[in-house]
Computed example of a mutant assay.
Amino acid sequence: MIKTSIEAIIFDWAGTTVDFGSRAPMGAFVKLFQSEGVEMSISQARIPMGINKWDHINALLSLPEIQAQWVQIHGRPHASSDVDRLLEIFVPMNKVSIQECGQLIPGVAELTKKLREQHIKIGSTTGYTKELLDILLPIAKEQGYAPDALSFSGDTPLGRPSAQMMHKCATQLGLDNPLSFIKVDDTEPGIEEGKAFGCWTVGVAVSGNALGLSLEELNALSKDEGRQSQGFGKNQNERNAA
């Protein structure tokens, strides 16, 4: 049996390293569709989470309940040009929400410091575009988190769940053995991205898209509600910070 050591960990952003509850993209998506006269819930907005933002908007427009509203308003199904236009509106909205929700998830700065002390490199992949990541990177750096390599939506021909962004990070880090990588993500497409690359994967639960609660909302739950929501013991919040 071939033994390999971990040389790099590739993290997602919203819900994994920043923005507890992955709230920034959701609020922007809901506002975006409201501006078009389409009512959409936060739960609906979360369904395609993890893929790039153009595909996310397209997937939302393809949901039967959203599509029906769109057709009623516009008299036709949506086209690619509609997605292009909506993305142009979405990006400024998401810039504002990123600035509002850019706090590091507790424990991330400490974790990455310890990883570097063990000579483990840190990378990131994200469904955010470069324009959005340019807003988020300095905010995270000020709080003590800065990856060594990154790939973003539009950086590769295919986004998640393909492995292309993972390969891009591996090239930047000068590493080529997938079994020396761990992919950490709070969305299914992000986990599938790691599996497509052939590396170890770790799913983030409590701070991520699936639960969708801010840290304040989570802490406001009673102990019984917290255990039921998390499916773990009362110290899960601390364990999840990684």
Rank of each mutant, 00 (worst) to 15 (best):
A68W: 02
V30W: 00
F232L: 14
A220Y: 00
N219R: 12
P92E: 14
S97N: 07
E217W: 09
H74P: 04
T171E: 15
N58Y: 10
V204W: 01
L158Y: 03
K234N: 15
L215H: 08
A109K: 12
L175S: 01
L173I: 09
Q172N: 06
N237G: 12
I51G: 01
R23M: 14
K114F: 11
G190D: 09
P189A: 08
L111Q: 02
C101V: 01
T129S: 13
N219V: 04
E192S: 07
F232W: 14
L213K: 06
F11G: 02
M40L: 15
G123P: 13
T125E: 03
S214T: 15
Q44K: 07
W70L: 10
Q99W: 04
D12T: 00
A140D: 13
D148F: 09
R85K: 11
D82Q: 03
I42Q: 00
H167T: 05
L136K: 04
Q230H: 12
K141H: 13
T16M: 14
R239N: 12
D186Y: 02
T112Y: 02
I182Y: 04
P48L: 12
D19W: 08
F33W: 08
E217T: 04
R46K: 14
P77Q: 13
H119E: 15
I2W: 09
I89F: 08
K114M: 13
K195W: 00
E36W: 03
L211P: 06
F232K: 12
Q228T: 05
K31L: 13
G154H: 01
L179A: 15
Q143L: 04
D82K: 06
T4V: 15
I135S: 00
G212M: 02
G15I: 06
T125Q: 00
E88G: 07
S81T: 08
K121I: 07
I120V: 11
D224A: 14
K31S: 13
S35M: 15
I6C: 14
Q34G: 12
H167S: 11
V71S: 05
S43M: 07
S81Y: 05
S151P: 03
E39S: 11
A28D: 06
P147R: 11
